[in-house]
């Protein structure tokens, strides 16, 4: 190891007062963020009685896992869950493909027609046609009430494409030039050289898409009426919302039979927890690309 590098390494591992203050402040911040979330989790593991009485703060009262068990065994939950998993995996794959293939050419300043294409992208990023045209399009393509509706709607985000394009633009030109000299085509360069260097942004955008698909509620509202094809977020959102106000604007009880059979608060909390856990599991796998380690950059001189 060179002397400079050794010195750098030892310097980097030394801790100063700043480090400690930094960690303390950040920890406090983390606690502030975490506590309210803990309340939802605590409710999911508490008995219904304590939850209704508002006794549950950050720790379960009357700890039981029955509620969670009840939620995951419900048919409608399982079907919605399955639907969302399929839509998320397929959708994210398609999205990453479209995003990376379009970001790369657009990251080249010399591309002919670049400005025009970018204008088009910005335009579609800002202008949305609304319920009617989108529904009619999907209907005429025969996609309504199929899983494809959930995959195609949200399959391309201009915003995410810009993020990737930005990242590509910031990569040093020397690497691409080296590849060009070696006779690689554009596609080859993208796959073998650029992508491996772009793992942070690929991880970020994959995460963004995955979460976007997982959380997509509107697609279900617009395109799916089949009772067993509703995505998880729609199931969850409706479940949480129906419990909010039992009376309507005139003061009358909305549909009394539904009101009588409302899901309990702890069931709702449990459903929230169970619906969120899967996507949380994705994060740690991608996280290693965000955390700057002691790795040395791949570009030499």
């Amino acid at each position: 190891m060179s002397k400079t590098r050794k010195k750098a390494q030892s310097y980097l591992t030394r801790r100063t007062a700043f480090d400690y203050i930094d960690m303390v402040v950040l920890s406090l911040f983390g606690v502030m963020i975490l506590l309210p979330v803990l309340q939802v989790v605590a409710k999911a593991f508490s008995g219904e009685g304590p939850v209704i009485a508002g006794l549950v703060t950050f720790w379960p009262i009357g700890f039981q896992t029955d509620t969670i068990g009840y939620v995951v065994k419900k048919g409608e939950f399982l079907k919605a869950f399955q639907t969302s998993v399929i839509a998320t995996v397929a959708g994210t794959t398609l999205s990453m493909f479209l995003t990376v293939t379009s970001a790369y050419p657009l990251s080249k300043p010399t591309l002919v027609g670049r400005k025009f294409i970018l204008y088009v992208f910005v335009f579609i990023m800002l202008f949305h046609a609304g319920m009617v045209p989108n529904y009619l399009l999907f209907r005429s393509l025969g996609l309504t009430n199929t899983i494809w509706a959930l995959i195609f709607s949200g399959a391309f985000s201009v915003f995410n494409m810009f993020i990737v394009k930005n990242y590509f633009e910031a990569l040093p030109e020397s690497v691409e030039e080296a590849a060009r000299i070696d006779g690689a085509s554009n596609i080859r360069t993208l796959v073998s050289v650029i992508l491996p260097m772009s793992m942070p942004v690929v991880a970020t955008v994959t995460l963004y898409y995955a979460v976007g698909f997982w959380n997509n509620y509107m697609a279900g509202v617009l395109y799916i009426t089949k009772a067993d094809l509703k995505p998880l977020q729609q199931y969850l959102y409706d479940l949480v919302r129906q419990a909010l106000d039992t009376t309507d604007a005139a003061g009358n009880i909305k549909d009394i039979d539904s009101t009588m059979n409302l899901t309990g608060e702890s069931v709702r909390a449990a459903t929230i927890v169970v619906s969120t856990v899967p996507i949380l599991i994705v994060y740690p796998f991608l996280q290693k690309y965000f955390v700057k380690g002691m790795t040395i950059g791949s570009v030499k001189g």
Binding site: F97, L98, T101, P133, N134, L137, L141, F156
Partner: peptide
């Protein structure tokens, strides 16, 4: 490389804009 995305947005983003 651009073709797949351009086709996709032509169908799913540009066509509905006629409904604007």
């Amino acid at each position: 490389l651009l073709v797949p995305t351009l086709v996709f947005i032509a169908i799913f983003n540009l066509v509905p804009l006629w409904g604007l």
